[in-house]
Simulated assay, not measured.
Amino acid sequence: MQNLPNTMLAVRARGPDDLFVDSETPIPKVRPGYILIKVFSVALNPSDYKRLGVFNESVSHTMGCDAAGRVVVCGGDIGQSYKPGDRVAGLCYGMKPQDPSCGAFGEYALLKGSLTMRVPDHVSDAEAATIPVGVNFAGQALYHTLRLPLPLPRLGLGLSTKPPSVLIYGGATATGMTALQFARLSGCHVISTCSPRNFQLVKALGAHSVFDYHDADACGPAIRAATNNNLLYALDCVAAGESLRICAEALTSRSGVATYTASLPVGDRFPRKDVRYGWTSGYTSFGEPTHLAASDAKLRTGVGAAADSDSDFAAWFWKLAVDLLQHDRLRLGPLVHLRQGGLAGVQEGLAELKGGNVSAGKLVYTF
């Protein structure tokens, strides 16, 4: 780590809902399987303020999950995958228990090599910051949990003779906007929900049909009718309010054949016990202990994988995703809501996000 400073500017958590910008944060130490990057851009996610709300460690931790920048140092076991100077985007485990340095919101960030990708030249720094969380979660939810066809038609592994239908509830959320694109690339018939003001955007990103979730009594039955009572898969990117009910009523009435997964824990709140249901956690992609109970990350019936299987799948899927990105198959521009202020602006951005004032994209800060 020669020619690097000893400390950096970073956004840190020091208690529940208590964050600050610390100019004396130690530079993360490189470890085997990881790379250190000089951060150029970061993006905010709901998981950031939700983790902050329950943070209760004895020392301050760096926050954030989405980071993009240039490689500075490669740890052992990286091999020829990356080299200093490479432009990359990768996933951080912000506020990881007992690991104060594993966060994105700093001048430097530590990325796990298997959850990192080279950024193509046609992707801007701001766009690059929107990649990690969305790609990782969409891959785990759509393909590892729901077991939808992979977007690999040229290898004969993608399109089926009768593509399945999938509901992406919350198509105008940041995760929904990414999931829509992958599902469409898989050849699925994609149904989504959002506010009418975002219908055009959601259709442009891959939805064949879109329904207004505001009328909770009509939305689910309308989707079931539109899919001829054959909808077998639902990904709920909201997992709050009426979303569980609407998804339950949209899925086929046939017992024991449908699967629902959410972006948040649903416990026993899902209305139908004849549907395999649960939630998908992106944190298990690290293949390490998480702040979440392992059983909470699985579907009620056991569909869904243990952490080691999640990490193996994630490493494979990230390679697939970078191939799609290099061939310009994923649209990132619509996700970017660029904000000023660099790291110092993150606190205001998190408050904006927590207040429900951000839709159809992610808040992105470049510096």
Rank of each mutant, 00 (worst) to 15 (best):
D215F: 05
G278Q: 09
E249W: 00
G241Y: 00
A250E: 01
T284W: 10
A258G: 12
C237I: 04
G267Y: 09
W279M: 13
S243P: 06
S255R: 15
A226G: 13
F270I: 11
A240Q: 10
V275P: 04
P289S: 09
T284G: 01
S281D: 14
L251C: 12
T284R: 13
F211M: 03
A239M: 02
D217K: 13
A262D: 06
T261P: 00
I246P: 03
T259R: 14
A222Q: 09
F270S: 01
A239G: 04
V257N: 03
S255L: 11
A262G: 07
T261Y: 00
G282V: 12
V266G: 02
G241L: 00
R245F: 01
S285Y: 06
E242A: 15
A216S: 15
N229H: 07
A239Q: 03
V210S: 01
L251E: 12
T284F: 08
S285R: 09
P271H: 12
N229V: 11
T280N: 09
Y277V: 03
S253F: 10
N229S: 11
D217N: 10
T261L: 03
N228F: 10
P265A: 13
P289H: 06
V275M: 06
I223E: 01
T259N: 09
R272N: 15
N230G: 07
G267V: 08
A239Y: 01
A226T: 08
A225C: 07
D212N: 07
T261R: 05
D274H: 10
I223C: 03
V210G: 00
V238A: 08
R269T: 07
T259A: 13
A258K: 02
A225R: 13
L251A: 10
D215V: 07
E242N: 15
S263K: 06
S253R: 15
R272M: 13
P265C: 08
L231M: 06
G278P: 07
C219E: 07
R224V: 08
D217V: 08
L292C: 01
C247V: 01
Y260W: 13
D268I: 01
